[in-house]
Amino acid sequence: MKHTKHNRLTLQVLGLAAISLLGYQNCAPGTLNSKGSASSASQGSFSDCGDNLCEVADVKMVAISNSQNVGTAMLNKAGVSAPSTATTNAFTAQSGKLPETGSVDQITAPAWMAIATMGSEVCNDLLTQETAANATRRIFNSVDFARGPASVTTAAKDDVIRRLARSFWSRNETMQEAALIKSALDDSFSGATAGDTRKAMLFVCTAMLSSTDAQKY
C-alpha cells in the first residue's frame, strides 16, 4: 500500500498522541517513574485505578534505545526478518535525531518523531509480511483485511493489542491501556473501506512500537 505524505503525517500525529497517553508520565531527568508493578499488570487485572492509567512510584534507572540499537530492537520486537528498502532508508535518515547514548535526558521531540517514523515503517513491513498470500499470521490473526474497520470485533482488537503488547512491551497490556487504544481506534478509523483496516492496524502497531514502554530498557 502506498503511503501518501498526508496519511503518514496523520499516523505520526496520532501515534504521538498515543505515546503521550500510554507512556512518558512524570519524567525527571535521568530517571523515569517506571511501572514497578509491571508483573502484576501483566495479568490485565489492574483495576484499582478505576478508568485511569495506573502509575506506581518505583524510581529506578532506565534508559531508552539509542541510535545504535533502536532499529534492531524494533525489527526484533516485530519479527520483521527482511526489512524493506523504505525501512532501511528510514533508519539511515532518522539516525542522526536519535538519542546517542539512550540517556533519558536525551529525549527530545525530534527523537520521538524519528522513533515514530521508524516504527511506522517497521509496522508497515510487518503488515506486508502478515498480509502476504499464505503468510503465517502472528499478530493480526483475527483481522480480516478484506473488510472495513467496523468488521474488526472487540475481541479481535483485544487479541491484536495483547499480541502487540507481549511483542513490544514484554508484558500484557492493562485494561486501561487496552481501552485507551480501542477508543483511539474507534474515533479515528470508522470507515467502511477495506484499506482503512490496514491503516487502523498500522496506527495501533506504530503507537505501541513507538511508545515509551517499547523503547525503554
Binding site: 539509542n66 530492537a73 526484533n76 519479527g79 539512550g102 514484554s170 517499547a214 530498557y217
Partner: peptide
C-alpha cells in the same frame, strides 16, 4: 535486555 541492550518479545 540489560546484557544485550536489545529488548525481545516476552514469548
Amino acid at each position: 535486555k540489560a546484557l544485550t541492550s536489545v529488548s525481545i518479545p516476552i514469548d
